[in-house]
Simulated scan of single mutants.
Amino acid sequence: MQKITPFLWFDDQAEQAAAFYTSVFERSKIVDVMHYPDAGEGGKGRVMSVTFELDGQTFIALNGGPNPQFAFSPAMSLFIHCRSQEEVDALWQRLGEGGERLQCGWLRDKFGVTWQVVPTVLGGMLRDEDHERAARVMRAMMRMCKLDIAQLQRAYEGEGG
């Protein structure tokens, strides 16, 4: 069992969200579905929580009922390390369906959860000892919604940015 598990509060879409997320990521599955007892929120038999795994990472989704104080926000996001442009493209497309595409590789999915879809090569580019090179990459990234490895590479090499 992992020591720290992200716990996501949904109004009443925990089961739908878990099913969607496990369909997007490889090596993912629903682990457990717990129902409210008689005295629970919304009545006996209603789904209370769903435990699921995304690529081996455990999450818990709760049907906690509507509460505007507990809405998702970009202040807490899920960061996805992508090995290729194909992976960036596929995850950007699937997670963005019905949601909102934001700047710098961020998007809000149809359930309100914020994700960062980021190619792994970006970190090395931004940590480059040549500060001007890193700054060019940062400027290029700031102009993008979905991150494009080829454009970032051109900025890194001084061909743009």
Rank of each mutant, 00 (worst) to 15 (best):
K110I: 03
L78S: 04
Q16K: 15
C145P: 04
P74A: 08
F25L: 07
G99L: 08
G124A: 07
T58Q: 14
F20R: 06
L62Y: 08
Q153A: 11
F59C: 08
L62S: 09
F10S: 01
Q151V: 13
M125Y: 07
S28Y: 11
E132T: 13
Q116S: 05
A155H: 03
K44V: 14
Q151C: 07
D130I: 10
R133I: 07
N67G: 13
S49N: 15
F52R: 00
E41Y: 14
T51S: 13
G56V: 12
G42D: 11
A61C: 01
K110L: 07
S28F: 12
E26Y: 04
A17S: 10
G43Q: 11
K29Q: 15
V47Q: 00
D55M: 10
L126S: 02
Q13G: 05
F70H: 11
L102D: 00
C104S: 09
Q103H: 12
E159M: 11
A19I: 07
A90S: 12
D148V: 06
I80Q: 06
L62I: 05
D38T: 14
V113C: 05
G65F: 09
E129D: 13
G160S: 14
D130R: 08
L147Y: 06
C145M: 15
A135R: 05
R83Q: 12
L102V: 05
R27Q: 15
L54R: 05
D89A: 13
M142D: 03
L152W: 01
A135H: 07
R83I: 01
S84W: 07
W115E: 01
G45V: 10
L8S: 02
S84C: 06
Q93Y: 11
V113S: 02
I4Y: 10
L95N: 00
E87S: 11
Q153Y: 07
